[in-house]
């Protein structure tokens, strides 16, 4: 079994996250880059299967600037078998279609039985990439899984949508995405970090994948403007001395929110 896990480096949600008001891209200077928590869970899901099924190969794949190498190494230190890192200056600010093209090409090149992604990245991707990649690969998508059961030829799990809870399944090969209801990523150990240094780590560019980032015939989604909202200020803060609820009720009445 070969599992490709899609991983993304994002600005740490615990820190200040900014967009560069000139380029509209994430301001990498202010942010602490980390492996997205949901992708740690995706790696964990693959490793949990690999632990129980020796011979399983887990490939961590990302499209990110060269500086994301430490984040990719984290997935290797957790236990992934190898890594593929797509690096290309021409991919800076890539839109969703181009990103999906690149990831699908890299997955096809690596070979796969299953692709595992996060359901939503924390830096605002919108959770559409897994299904886009599935379409490009011509395979089924099972997204937003809160449980994952994998066998040699099929994948299944529970999926919650607005309509209700369903059990879904698909024959392999397939693309799945998981939610944060899945177990947290395991901690890296010193041994894991040392072992990661010796694992296969391949860097490729768009051309090697047969993707043309600047093809004028393909429509792109481009950023027009970025603006910042002023931060929120604190208002009244009182300590309850038995009458706080009455004061709050009066405040709400004054605000005109009650009807």
């Amino acid at each position: 079994m070969k599992i490709v896990v899609l991983i993304k480096e994002v600005p740490d949600t615990w820190g200040e996250r900014r967009l560069d008001l000139e380029t509209g891209l994430t301001d990498r200077a202010t942010a602490t880059p980390v492996l997205d928590e949901i992708d740690e869970r995706a790696v964990e899901a693959a490793l949990a299967f690999a632990d129980a099924h020796p011979g399983t190969e887990v490939v961590a794949l990302t499209m990110a600037p060269a500086s994301a190498a430490a984040t990719v190494r984290k997935a290797l230190a957790m236990g992934a078998t190898s890594a593929v890192h797509v690096v290309d200056d021409a991919l800076r600010g890539a839109d969703l279609l181009l990103t999906a093209d690149v990831l699908a090409a890299a997955i096809r090149r690596a070979g796969f039985d299953l692709v595992i992604a996060g359901n939503l990245s924390t830096d605002g991707g919108g959770g559409v990439l897994p299904a886009m990649v599935a379409e490009m690969l011509g395979v089924p998508n099972l997204t937003a899984l809160s449980t994952l059961e994998l066998s040699d030829d099929s994948v299944a799990g529970e999926r919650v949508s607005d309509a209700g809870t369903m059990r879904v399944s698909a024959a392999l090969p397939a693309v799945v995405s998981i939610t944060e209801a899945m177990p947290e990523g395991r901690f890296t150990t010193f041994k894991g970090i040392m072992a990661a240094k010796k694992k296969p780590y391949e860097t490729v560019d768009a051309t090697a994948l047969g993707v043309e980032p600047e093809d004028p015939a393909v429509p792109r989604y481009i950023m027009l403007s970025v603006s910042e909202r002023p931060p929120r200020a604190a208002g009244v803060k009182i300590t309850d001395e038995g009458d706080a609820a009455e004061k709050l009720a009066a405040f709400l009445a004054d605000e005109g929110v009650l009807r």
Partner: peptide, 23 residues
């Protein structure tokens, strides 16, 4: 941008090679 619709529209954009704006 619901779990169901998002998947369908994402696959559509990929199939027709159209730009996609999410969320």
């Amino acid at each position: 941008n619901s779990v169901e619709s998002r998947d369908a529209i994402a696959r559509l954009a990929a199939r027709l090679r159209l730009p996609l704006a999410a969320d």
